[in-house]
Simulated assay, not measured.
Amino acid sequence: MKIWLMIGMALIVILIWWYEWSRLGREKKKEKAAVAVLLCLTMLLGVILIINPELPGPTQAVNWLFRPLGKMLEK
């Protein structure tokens, strides 16, 4: 079951990559690198969360990181 989720996610990532890559021109190498890096990181995070769904997601990590700052600003 998990393998089908990973295959489906890979297909969606490939479609997003193809769409974005075709819209960027030949001169925009930095933008292409940024798209590739973000898609790879997203794919990696997705696979990790499919394999181990009990792990906290990125929203919980951001909340954990910035909660002390929010408490300091409330005072």
Rank of each mutant, 00 (worst) to 15 (best):
A61W: 13
P56F: 00
L44H: 07
E54Q: 10
Y19N: 10
M9A: 13
I48R: 08
E20R: 07
G8C: 04
G46D: 02
W4G: 04
P53D: 02
I48F: 02
R26M: 08
T59K: 02
P53A: 03
G57K: 05
A36G: 06
K71D: 06
L5T: 08
V47Y: 07
A33R: 14
I14F: 15
M9N: 09
P68Y: 07
L11D: 01
N63W: 02
C40E: 01
L65W: 06
P58R: 01
I14V: 15
R23T: 10
I14E: 13
V47C: 10
M9H: 06
K28A: 14
E31N: 06
W4F: 12
W64C: 00
L24D: 01
P58A: 04
P68A: 11
L38R: 15
Q60I: 02
K2D: 04
C40N: 03
G25N: 08
N63V: 12
K2V: 09
M72D: 00
G70M: 11
K29V: 12
G8I: 04
G70H: 11
V35T: 14
I12Y: 05
N52H: 07
V62P: 00
L11S: 14
L45S: 11
L44A: 15
W17H: 08
P53R: 01
F66K: 03
I51E: 03
E54I: 09
W4S: 10
L65Q: 04
L11K: 05
L69S: 07
L24Q: 11
A34R: 15
G70L: 11
I12C: 08
M9C: 11
K32S: 04
M1E: 06
K75H: 09
Y19K: 13
W18E: 04
L39H: 10
L24H: 05
K28L: 09
I50V: 15
A36N: 13
E54C: 00
L49P: 01
V37M: 13
V47A: 07
G57I: 01
